[in-house]
């Protein structure tokens, strides 16, 4: 309880400080450059030049300290040894290139990168198309969208239960093994199965991201001009043709946005692997490998940072694409 009081106090203090800053700094500005008197014109111009920076100040400060500085600092650390005391140049990167765990992580990340955005977008598109044309569509949408609210850790528990394994002959309590045995198959320890276990982890992220894809694609589908669809139907197109040849081509832009957004999430995927397999049995991914180097056993910040920089480099093309898109829109 004391702790909640502390939190409430912080909210009040934080809000008060923010308001005091924005309000106070504006008053000071108006006092220094009063918008009246003989130099009113010049003063208004000057105050107008300074005021945006007062509004932006706290945000710029926080962004610099919490996002820009770490990028630079990580780049610097990645060129140094484990505790940052010695310059090693590209040594950490050379080490990465011959490390088998890194190869495994990179390969798995690529698998994730190919599979998850594709399937999540596909399922999202299908569910958007289907739920848009039935009476209980909104309820259906809500339920498919629901996993978005569930934490990766919670989802990890939920899916680990589905993949649960009991010895052959025992009653299976994991849904997947129960289905497999019901059809006469042998139960499997899904999360240990070489190569395929990564896909069982991906299922979790696909399950979470499909709702996101669905919501956005559904809005895009509704935005398609009616005339194009009506014209196609008059020309005798089947529903399938209408969907594939009329609708999908018109929402390519949105599909690309959804795809890249999920791609970013995939590149950073950590929690799911962390809690379900911890990267064992060949399921390692970059983010978890980095965590291992930074926080497990004897930390090696140099190598950990090098992996972080690799993740950053993989994200960069999408970042540039996003910036260009945003600028195009604002024009």
């Amino acid at each position: 309880m004391e702790q909640l009081g502390f939190a409430a106090g912080t909210i009040v203090a934080g809000v008060f400080t923010c308001v005091a800053w924005f309000w106070g700094s504006n008053i000071v500005l108006d006092a220094v450059y009063p918008p009246r008197g003989p130099k009113a014109g010049v003063n208004i111009l000057r105050a107008g030049a300074i005021r945006p920076w007062l509004f932006l100040g706290p945000a710029i400060l926080l962004l610099s300290v919490y996002l820009v500085y770490p990028v630079i600092n990580s780049a610097w650390r990645s060129l140094h040894n484990s505790d940052g005391s010695e310059w090693v140049g590209l040594g950490n990167y050379f080490w990465l290139m011959q490390d088998t765990k890194f190869h495994e992580s990179l390969f798995n990340n690529l698998l994730w990168l190919v599979t998850v955005p594709a399937l999540a977008t596909l399922f999202g598109l299908i569910s958007a198309q289907i739920t848009d044309r039935i009476k209980w569509g909104n309820t259906g949408k809500s339920l498919i969208f629901m996993p978005m609210a569930i934490s990766f850790v919670g989802a990890g528990v939920i899916w680990k239960f589905i993949y649960d394994y009991r010895g052959e002959g025992l009653d299976q309590i994991g849904l997947l093994n129960a289905i497999v045995t019901a059809f006469g198959g042998t139960p499997q320890t899904w999360l240990v199965l070489p190569f395929w276990n990564s896909f069982f982890l991906m299922a979790v992220l696909i399950w979470i991201q499909t709702g996101f894809a669905m919501v956005i694609l559904s809005a895009a589908l509704r935005g398609i001009p009616e005339e194009t669809i009506e014209a196609a139907i008059l020309d005798g197109a089947s529903p399938w043709q209408v969907f594939m040849k009329i609708k999908v081509p018109q929402i390519w832009g949105t599909i690309a946005v959804v795809w890249t957004t999920i791609t970013i999430t995939v590149l950073k995927v950590f929690d799911i692997v962390f809690v379900m397999t911890n990267g064992e049995w060949g399921t390692q991914v970059l983010a978890n490998l980095m965590y291992n180097w930074m926080f497990r056993g004897a930390p090696d910040y140099g190598r950990g940072s090098a992996i972080a920089i690799v993740i950053m480099l993989l994200v960069t093309p999408i970042m540039i694409w996003n910036i260009r898109n945003a600028r195009k829109e604002s024009r």
């Binding site: 940072s305 993740i311 950053m312």
Partner: peptide
């Protein structure tokens, strides 16, 4: 899109 992982140690 900056990965959070970068920010942890610094």
């Amino acid at each position: 899109v900056v990965p959070l992982q970068l920010a942890l140690i610094p």
